[in-house]
């Protein structure tokens, strides 16, 4: 309706100028530096870190391939890099699945509490989300160490005599990431369930569906947007994780983030680090784009 007062929005005029201070800071400290990373990925490494100002695609080449030091003609796939890349994707996927499997019942549990209680449970999920990621990783490290809580408890109970080494394994990284990113799955799932019309579940039962059938044919399709959002919210920080694999995975079980950081530290190959960072960014953006497409498709379906 044209008579709707909210329809008539102000002309922008000079108003957008108010955004300029924020944009200057963001260009200086976010998007500008990102552009320079793109540039650096096409330069040659300097002797003591940094770059030499010569164009080169060597960094990108070395992301996936390697040349034998003694025989430059001998080009092979860069096993080490691909292993890290694969571990990053695989661990992130597993993290997402674990979070979904535990997060769905948790979100359902919260959504079906009486309204007063719901806020409390929701608050309990949100607290870990806002407490320092490093501290939560530290808490997991305390559990997993050789003389940590789990091993001490098991030895005290007489289940084992020797501590089970759990630190610096894929398992430790996986557990840590699932632990720190769990709230990111529960919150959007809860939001989807909160919006869900429970009368539809009643209608399902009324039409002779079993619990499993209701779950499969009514509930899951309705909370699918929450699943998609939660999965993306868990997957993106997982694939870019740095702190958790550094603390729990150590030097052996690196993920992409650690490999990138390494190039700017001991590796002293900034262009390679920049190229690897671009690879990480491309994976992240791809995941985001897939997510946005899924959201749009969902909205189209609702409209049509």
């Amino acid at each position: 309706m044209a008579s709707d007062p909210n329809q008539t929005e102000e002309r922008h005029g000079w108003k957008w100028l108010l955004a300029t201070p924020a944009l200057i800071v963001l260009v200086l400290a976010a998007s500008g530096p990102l552009m320079i990373v793109v540039l650096y990925s096409f330069l040659s490494p300097g002797n003591m870190g940094g770059v030499a100002w010569e164009f080169s695609t060597d960094a990108w080449f070395r992301v996936f391939m390697r040349r034998d030091i003694f025989d430059p003609e001998n080009v092979t796939v860069n096993q080490a890099h691909l292993a890290v890349l694969w571990r990053s994707v695989w661990l992130s996927a597993q993290t997402t699945v674990i979070c979904a499997v535990l997060g769905f019942p948790t979100a359902w549990f919260i959504a079906t509490r009486p309204p007063g209680q719901r806020t409390v449970w929701l608050f309990l999920i949100t607290i870990p989300f806002w407490t320092n990621l490093l501290i939560r990783t530290f808490a997991i490290q305390e559990m997993l160490r050789n003389n940590g809580t789990i091993n001490t408890a098991l030895m005290w109970m007489g289940v084992i005599n020797e501590p089970i080494p759990m630190m610096f394994t894929d398992f430790a990284v996986l557990l840590g990431m699932a632990y720190v990113f769990m709230p990111l799955m529960v919150l959007p799932l809860y939001a989807a369930m909160d919006k869900m019309d429970f009368r539809l579940v009643e209608a399902g039962y009324d039409l002779y569906a079993s619990r499993i059938a209701v779950l499969r044919h009514v509930i899951l399709p309705l909370v699918k947007p929450g699943f998609i959002a939660g999965s993306i919210l868990v997957f993106i920080p997982s694939i870019g994780a740095y702190v958790t694999p550094r603390v729990l995975g150590g030097g052996q079980k690196m993920m992409l983030g650690n490999l990138i950081a390494l190039q700017f530290g001991q590796g002293r190959n900034w262009p390679l680090g920049a190229a690897l960072a671009m690879v990480l960014l491309i994976i992240t953006v791809t995941a985001l784009v897939l997510y946005l497409r899924a959201v749009n498709r969902q909205e189209d379906k609702r409209d049509g």
Binding site: A30, S31, P33, L34, I36, G240, Y242, A261, G273, A274
Partner: peptide, 23 residues
Amino acid sequence: IYALINQPLMVPEVVTGIALLIV
């Protein structure tokens, strides 16, 4: 403007980190 404002949310922290390191 939206993209610029939300960039720090979308780009992995480690990428922002090394980008800042370079600059």
